[in-house]
């Protein structure tokens, strides 16, 4: 398979800020994201700051049109093309993948 083949999309949950841009730009609405906010008080800071904590991130590859808009719009490079081959499933729901799987598909740095 060519290295630039549109195959699967991986997620780096540590880089994701739950900004929702990918979810809202997806033409087929195949990304779901759930997060909660959490107050963090840093030493020396006057006010606690609110950070978003990523709880769930799923891509439904049954609907995904592999357009790459989510990869392009992510301001934090938390989404990237994977070189893994497409994964068939025995049910439509089997094509929905969450953080545990998506993180495995995120290409290692430098690749």
């Amino acid at each position: 398979m060519p290295s630039n083949a549109h195959s699967l999309i991986g997620l780096n949950p540590d880089a994701c800020t739950s900004c929702m841009i990918c979810v809202r730009e997806c033409p087929v609405w195949c990304i779901d994201l759930a997060s909660h906010t959490h107050e963090v008080t840093e030493e020396g800071a006057r006010r606690p700051k609110v950070v978003h904590v990523l709880d769930e991130f799923t891509i439904d590859f049954g609907a995904c049109m592999y357009c790459g808009i989510c990869v392009d719009v992510c301001p934090f490079d938390a989404l990237a093309w994977s070189n893994e081959t497409d994964q068939s499933a025995h049910s439509a729901s089997g094509l929905v993948h969450g953080i545990d799987q998506l993180v495995k598909w995120f290409p290692a740095s430098g690749s």
Binding site: Y66, T85, S88
Partner: peptide
């Protein structure tokens, strides 16, 4: 989804899936 009409045994994702994905699906 065509599975509303006939029972589907293997779903191959992609838009389009690559030819390799077809073979992987048939292998399933």
């Amino acid at each position: 989804g065509i599975d509303q009409v006939i029972p589907i045994e293997v779903y191959v994702p992609g838009c389009p899936p690559r030819p390799e994905a077809l073979i992987a699906g048939l292998a399933e």
